[in-house]
């Protein structure tokens, strides 16, 4: 069973995503902020990260950059509630498997995850 880490500061969204991924047969590690994810980075076994871009503290894109900078190349799927060309471009530049605009269908998420394996 593969593990997916979800970094999302909206509790509802985090819970909804966790339930969905669980129902789809993934193990889910949920984090309410980039900071809390980074804290437990060492124990992380996730095959893939699902990261919200607009997080309260460190943004999703900055998180990806930090990971890249520290040599961690987790595949990242960005999700965002604020779609703009600049955000999309920043996400692509930071490197990502997919960029999903909330609300999104599970099919898109599953497709993105399946690209990782």
């Amino acid at each position: 069973m593969r593990t997916i880490a979800v970094v999302e500061d909206d509790p509802s969204m985090l819970q909804g995503l966790s339930r969905l991924l669980s129902a789809l047969g993934f193990r889910v590690d949920g984090f309410a902020s980039a900071e809390s994810f980074l804290d437990s980075l060492a124990q992380c076994e996730a095959a893939c990260l699902v990261v919200d871009i607009h997080l309260g503290g460190i943004s999703g894109i900055d998180l990806k950059r930090k990971l890249v900078a520290s040599g961690n190349d987790f595949p990242v799927i960005f999700i965002t509630a604020v779609d703009s060309e600049a955000t999309r471009q920043a996400a692509v530049d930071a490197g990502c498997v997919a960029y999903l605009r909330k609300p999104f269908l599970s099919k898109l998420l599953v497709e993105a995850i399946s690209q990782v394996s």
Partner: peptide, 8 residues
Amino acid sequence: QPLGAILS
């Protein structure tokens, strides 16, 4: 945000 949660 809530729409995404609802859909998921």
